[in-house]
């Protein structure tokens, strides 16, 4: 039995896909491999889950990429600010660079069962934000321990306010914060969208999550069964990414229906943000929290793609 914990609550479409995958794996391995989920964060934060994997209480976890920052810088490859502009870019890059992330995490003793796309995060706020000057007037929330988010805003001259997830709704209500960076479907699921008026329609960063399993535990499964687990999980992740794409599109519509206005940026504004990002990326490079050389290659590939007709 593989015990896998996640912060995602039960009953979400994501969990449904995961449960279906577990049922398929159990059927195809004739009950030799069972997966038991602990959704809704009942096993604690991502950090607690990683600790429990170490002592063997849990074998795996669906973990936000940011929580892997101390395990391997490779995990942060896709999550730097203003890297991608469209989902097509992400998909093309992933094809080339996913294996790198998988092999880097394998060196640390983790088997990656899949990397899932959680959509683009946008700045959402009570006032329209076009430039970093606009952002400077706002009280911006970043998740606690989110080094990349913090550095990004600090470079733009904004002192962000870091709060745990559980305090965000109340703090938006009271005005302790008025700007969040989040993807559309999470904004709706957490009901933060009821507290903002504007979305800056320029993706700040791309969010990913990953299911990792402890290598020692995984090797106890026979090689044939390992292949079955990997294959079914890969299929599940592919269908989840498709599902996620529709969810995000639906969530965008729902945002608009709820009276949230999408703020379009001019080409200069976009370039200004991307220039700001360059500074951030350079600063983060000195802290060695992402794979610098590989990221340069990734940027090069993006340049080439953008220049293709």
């Amino acid at each position: 039995t593989l015990k896998i914990a996640t912060l995602a609550p039960d009953g979400t479409s994501w969990m449904k896909v995961m449960r279906q995958a577990a049922a398929d794996i159990k059927a195809e391995t004739e009950g030799r491999v069972k997966i038991k989920y602990f959704p809704g964060g009942v096993q604690g934060s991502d950090k607690s889950v990683l600790r429990k994997m170490r002592i063997g209480q849990l074998q795996g976890g669906a973990i936000a990429t940011g929580s892997l920052i101390n395990i391997s810088p490779a995990s942060q490859l896709y999550n730097l600010p203003f890297t991608f502009r469209t989902l097509e870019e992400v998909r093309a890059i992933r094809e080339e660079f996913d294996p790198y992330i998988v092999s880097e995490l394998a060196k640390e003793g983790y088997v990656v069962l899949g990397i899932s796309e959680a959509g683009f995060a946008y700045m959402m706020s009570d006032e329209p934000i076009r430039t970093s000057d606009d952002a400077r007037k706002q009280k911006v929330w970043v998740p606690e321990g989110d080094l990349i988010g913090e550095t990004t805003f600090e470079n733009g001259g904004v002192e962000p306010i870091s709060l745990p997830l559980s305090d965000v709704y109340t703090s938006l209500q009271t005005g302790l914060i008025d700007t969040i960076v989040v993807n559309a479907s999470s904004a709706i699921a957490l009901q933060w969208h009821t507290k903002v008026n504007y979305v800056t329609d320029f993706p700040l960063l791309f969010l990913t999550g990953t299911i990792i399993v402890d290598q020692k535990a995984f090797r106890k499964i026979s090689t044939e069964d390992q292949a079955v687990v990997k294959r079914i999980m890969a299929e599940a992740f592919a269908s989840m990414d498709a599902q996620n794409e529709t969810d995000e599109a639906g969530a965008r519509d729902a945002l608009a229906q709820n009276g949230v206005e999408f703020v379009e940026l001019s080409e200069e504004d976009k370039q200004a943000w991307e220039e700001l990002a360059t500074g951030v990326v350079d600063e983060l490079a000195s802290k060695e929290i992402y794979p610098v050389e590989v990221f340069k290659r990734l940027q090069q590939r993006l340049e080439e793609m953008r220049q293709e007709p």
Binding site: K139, E144, G145, E150, E159, P160, I161, S162
Partner: peptide, 14 residues
């Protein structure tokens, strides 16, 4: 720090 300088000190809450 938060109310006067506009941002918190990120290592204090943890």
């Amino acid at each position: 720090a938060r109310s006067i300088f506009g941002g918190g000190v990120s290592w204090i809450p943890p």
